[in-house]
């Protein structure tokens, strides 16, 4: 294993769901590489396939025929070489999941066991992957709860998920995901339910853990403020495709895909001192709606909402992902024209 080798590489990932109304192509050929210690932010419209991408990496999608997954997901091995997670038998995947690759889920309430105290749940994860006694595992669980900022962790070991506030539940989820010091952590909207002081602490915590362990993080969020705080690189998704990828500073300074530019414009910002208050203020919103995955627009999926769209050009073929600079890729037929304007 060399440090330069990505710890995780996703190539041409495709995910299709069968539904009564037809097949939904939730992910349409996503590729990215994740280096050790790196934070890659996945951002994009709701329904763009961010969660499905991470569930595919975790191998937590339903089996065929409900859901078909294609492509390669390579996890680097300690001895060198890689193994394709998609080709792994479920038993072997069980050993990887929660140990080498773990995930913080978007919905804490549906992923915590309602009838098991949270301390037991964390301890169980530790005992499954490490031969630890119940006592040692519970002590480790107390430690983890403290590290994620749960007050009086020892007392909270016996709490049930429904006794915790939304933010406390999310912190328990984070503690559980960190239990085995994973090499890759997938965090699906991990701070969305948290208020800013705790969010700032959690981001700091993830940064610190990353420095200590060299853990790589895939950070899914719709908060571009958080992206600016934590990401090294950003992958912007739209309707199941990567539409732009760049270093974080480049993306904020020079967004090329009109969707990315629209997103950046619609970020709510704290008012500067001396503002007049709410009256008359409207957000800059991207017009239109998320495309129906059963009836994706032809050509560039974003063209019906795009202010730069040209009929005959943007609606005919899916644009390629083109190189637009070092580490900067963009999927837009008109990026050169837009960049120059």
């Amino acid at each position: 294993m060399t440090a330069a080798e990505p710890v995780l590489q996703v190539d041409g990932l495709r995910v299709r769901f069968a539904s009564d109304a037809g097949a939904v192509a939730a992910v349409n050929g996503i590729s990215f590489a994740l280096d050790r210690g790196e934070t890659l932010a996945l951002v994009g419209e709701s329904g763009s396939g961010k969660s499905v991408t991470s569930l595919a990496v975790m191998r937590l999608l339903p089996p065929p025929p409900v859901c078909e997954v294609g492509g390669r997901i390579s996890l680097a091995e300690a001895e060198g070489g890689v193994r394709d997670l998609l080709a792994l038998p479920e038993e072997a995947m069980c050993r990887v999941r929660g140990d080498r690759v773990s995930m913080i889920f978007q919905e804490p309430m549906t992923s915590l066991n309602p009838v098991l105290p949270v301390g037991e749940q964390i301890a169980e994860a530790i005992r499954f992957h490490r031969a630890a006694s119940r006592r040692v595992a519970l002590a480790a669980a107390t430690d983890l709860l403290e590290r994620v900022g749960i007050p009086e962790p020892r007392k909270r070991l016996g709490s049930y998920a429904h006794h915790l506030s939304g933010g406390q539940r999310q912190r328990v989820m984070i503690a559980m995901a960190l239990a085995c010091n994973p090499e890759v952590l997938i965090a699906d909207e991990p701070t969305t339910a948290l208020d800013v002081t705790v969010q700032a602490q959690i981001l700091e915590l993830l940064r610190r853990l990353q420095q200590e362990t060299g853990m790589a993080v895939i950070f899914i969020t719709h908060n571009l403020g958080v992206v600016a705080e934590i990401a090294d690189r950003v992958l912007v998704m739209y309707a199941g495709r990567a539409v732009e990828e760049a270093e974080v500073a480049t993306l904020f300074r020079r967004p090329l895909m009109p969707y990315t530019a629209g997103l950046l414009a619609s970020v709510p910002r704290l008012p500067e001192a001396g503002c007049k208050g709410r009256e008359g203020v409207r957000f800059a919103a991207i017009p239109g709606t998320v495309p129906d995955p059963l009836a994706l627009p032809s050509g560039c999926s974003f063209h019906p909402r795009c202010v730069h769209a040209k009929p005959g050009l943007c609606d005919s073929e899916v644009p390629d992902l083109e190189d637009a600079g070092p580490g900067h890729r963009v999927r837009c037929r008109r990026w050169r024209a837009i960049d120059g304007s």
Binding site: L224, P268, I286
Partner: peptide
């Protein structure tokens, strides 16, 4: 909170 920014704004 669960919405991405373009829709949040809307």
């Amino acid at each position: 909170s669960a919405l991405d920014v373009s829709i949040q704004a809307q």
